[in-house]
Design a protein around this nucleic acid. Structure first.
Ligand code: NAD
Ligand code: NAD
Lengths: 213, 213
DNA sequence: GCAACAATGTGATAACTCTCACAGGATCGT
DNA sequence: ACGATCCTGTGAGAGTTATCACATTGTTGC
């Protein structure tokens, strides 16, 4: 896979992720081959945008024909690094944490849930999917280190997020996905993404307010 | 196609939403006044970006001083339309739907959960927060119409999302937030946002893969 | 009252992202 | 074998968003 060293738009990465979904659907609908137009129709992105996005990483189609859906899905997963096996942990097994843990998506995209942590004594010891039990937060550093966990998902309340992040970092975590509504601070080497589900709702409210005018 | 009048970056709206969080935190930490620098530090946005974002909507600060945290929070909520009272419904009360329903954020941002729907007979009739019981999906159109519900949140599996969206639209919904990993199609007048939580994880995997090189 | 200071608001500019149009390569029918 | 047709890949340009620099304006101390 050749990666041209020009900078790749973040929006492109986000779209690549959605292309995977659409390609799966197209396969399920018996399309061994698709065009940028068909794929664009399926995921509501312009055909030109799709071709440009892919062109950052190489040539995956056949001119005059289109893309092999299965192969392209594999290529995109390779680009995104989803063919690795990412040892992952979730800290804060509340409502949102449980929703995430339950989600079949994980295994399909190469994320393997190795451990889960919570500070609630009543939850500790409970078994969640795949023979993983909830551990106390005192075990975070040790477990992350021993199991070589690379990705940490934070779904604790906001006022615990920084403390949890620190523990994960101490254990040697590589990447963090933070769902708590606070920007946690971590060393430069850590890859951090703050996810704000709620801003989507706010955004919707804004758009609706605009339309009224 | 429309909204030619407003050339406000989508990214700006997203940031405004995070500013609210940060302003709340600053208030909790006894800062009646803040500067764009302090706020920027708090939510990891450059001071210039914050000032530019706000400048699209007016002048909210005092030169040489800064911003009144409480007042600015109110102004941003006004801009985003969060001071309205948005009658809202959730369709698909599974893991994710429950996580959302439980979330205190709603009332604070002006979203009022009026109804919830599910196709699972075992769930119908169950009471969720605030005296709202889960209704069968056959009631969607009628309820949306009668209760004047304006915002619909879709948290069903992907293969039900379009059908659910159609019912909500038939009832006269104004805005839709779709969490299912499929792009639903709705008439132009409906404001639609597709939310992809999973793409954040994919994105993290990508960033980690890049760093290895 | 005024100078020194602090932090906003904004035009100019740089950086980034998307769109368009078409050249280039592949396939098919005759 | 070759022209017609199809769809990709991409450079150039348009459009959008972020950054910078500073003029502006309110505050404080003397
Ligand atoms: N629920 C949603 O839809 C939603 C949406 C967006 C963001 N969020 C954010 O996600 C986070 C979790 O939300 P939730 O609804 O699941 O809340 P929740 O209260 O259901 O779950 C929080 C969990 O974290 C655990 N916890 C608390 N302190 C901890 C600590 N120091 N270490 C480890 N675990 C700890 C609690 O025991 C609990 O199990 C919150 O920050 C919330 O703002 C939630
Ligand atoms: N759980 C997550 O963390 C997560 C993250 C991102 C996206 N999603 C997406 O959100 C959706 C829900 O995820 P989940 O984990 O809550 O799944 P879930 O299976 O726990 O919940 C789905 C719910 O929808 C109901 N349902 C099914 N068909 C319906 C219909 N036609 N009308 C009304 N209700 C119907 C089911 O009875 C169930 O209660 C899925 O599309 C999933 O891909 C989930």
């Amino acid at each position: 896979m050749k990666t041209k060293e020009s900078k790749i738009p973040e929006a492109t990465i986000k779209r690549l992720s959605t292309y995977i979904n659409c390609l799966e659907r197209l396969q399920a609908e018996n399309n061994p081959v698709t065009s940028s137009e068909m794929l664009g129709e399926s995921c509501q992105v312009s055909p030109a945008q799709i071709r440009k996005d892919l062109s950052y990483f190489g040539e995956f189609g056949v001119r005059g024909v289109g893309y092999d859906t299965k192969k392209l899905e594999g290529e995109i997963k390779e680009i995104l690094g989803l063919n690795h096996n990412w040892p992952t942990t979730v800290v804060g097994v509340g409502k949102l944490g449980q929703a995430l843990l339950n989600f079949a998506f994980f295994s399909k995209h190469g994320f393997r849930i190795i451990a889960a942590f919570d500070s609630d004594e009543n939850k500790i010891g409970n078994e969640i999917a795949h023979g993983v039990t909830i551990l106390p937060t005192t075990e975070i550093e040790k477990t992350v280190k021993n199991e070589k966990i690379t990705i940490g998902i934070i779904t604790t309340p906001a006022d615990s997020a920084q403390e949890v992040a620190d523990k994960l970092v101490a254990g040697g975590i590589k990447g963090l996905l933070n769902f708590a509504p606070i920007k946690v601070k971590v060393p430069e080497i850590i890859t951090l993404r703050n996810v704000s589900i709620t801003s989507e709702l706010d955004n919707l409210a804004y758009l609706l307010t605009q339309k009224k005018r």
